[in-house]
Design a protein around this nucleic acid. Structure first.
Lengths: 189, 189
DNA sequence: ATAATAATTGGATGAATGTCTAATAATTGA
DNA sequence: TCAATTATTAGACATTCATCCAATTATTAT
């Protein structure tokens, strides 16, 4: 068997929890929600995870893998680092529907955990680190003027602001307009 | 008596709930938290509010009044609409500590409620409307090129992105750098 | 002063929360 | 094949949750 039985259950739990945490928020998602969505027995979850916090850690790890794969994919397909940066902006466009509905999965998670779950936020912040460091590397390769770490954080902030407003107003038009502007900025910088 | 006894209790509940919702989040704040902070009897809250959602509505109303007063204050003190826009940016700077610790009270609230409390988010969104419309008015008065509503939303998004990143990284240096840049942009636009 | 109204008390409500346990079933490796 | 490990089940656990109530106390108008 390529994937052991337990492994399959574990992945199902992670996948369902990931969507629930994104769509409802971490605090608002209950054990019963996860159990129902994953169609797993209540007690069985504790054979795979030792707590709800532990599930979140697994979800963050899974998201890290997902996004890391995305980034290396762009690196493989696009030789020009500036085109890779634009691919980042295009990702926002291609996810406009879910962003308008639920906000940014990384931003909203960190916003929630940043309030009073410092240890968990430390884990979730790694998702930001991943993008920040990758963007900084591409900016450096692009030969942009100025500190590439500074520019990377600026770019992250712009993207987060766009996702947040698009979510608050459910406004995809705003998202399209702002990402187009951001792309222009990237070509100039 | 200037303020009836009940009125005073009611305001105390609102004030404490406002801070708790901001510091912990709406979902993460329990009735017991509010009761303990406001030093009010458990059952007494239901004489003033009919539910937790109802408390949030009162908190939003209070924040609306607060911010509306802030805006009219700037209008009174500053005749140049462009200086008023800069005052908006300076507000972010002056609140850098709480923004880095808890994020933006308006943005984080809307992000949380936007996920699965559409009716409550509709209320909270009015806080964004207040700023958006005011900023648009000042931008129009400034004679900026381009649609002032569009520019206002852009400005709001920039501010939200700054607050979010500053919160995630607890980074006031980033906040200062980005707001300075935003101020320069405002003087140019 | 007194009747009417408003505010407060303290405890009770049932439902939902996350967590755990002991027993059973399934899968795996020798 | 059979012992050992891993996975699943069903339910119970104490606690906390938001909400509500009946009784009491304060306050307000007349």
């Amino acid at each position: 068997m390529l994937q052991a039985k337990g492994e399959k259950t574990r992945n199902e739990i992670i996948e369902c929890a990931k969507n629930l945490f994104y769509h409802k928020g971490f605090e608002a998602t209950s054990f019963s929600d996860i159990v129902a969505a994953a169609q797993v027995n209540r007690g069985n979850i504790y054979h795979h995870f030792k707590s709800k916090d532990d599930i979140l850690r697994a979800v963050v790890d899974q998201r890290l893998q997902e996004f890391a794969a995305l980034l290396t994919g762009w690196e493989r397909r696009l030789s020009d680092p500036r085109e890779r940066l634009i691919a980042f902006v295009h990702m926002v466009v291609s996810r406009q529907d879910e962003l308008a509905r639920y906000g940014c999965p990384i931003g909203s998670l960190n916003t929630e955990l940043g309030k009073d779950r410092p240890l968990l936020q430390r884990e979730a912040r790694r998702l930001f680190d991943l993008f920040r460091d990758w963007l900084a590397r591409q900016l450096a390769l692009s030969g942009t003027a100025g500190n590439s770490q500074v520019l990377a954080l600026h770019l992250l902030g712009r993207a987060q602001g766009i996702a947040l407003i698009a979510h608050v107003y459910g406004d995809r038009t705003f998202l399209l307009r702002e990402t187009a502007e951001l792309e222009q900025w990237l070509r100039r910088v």
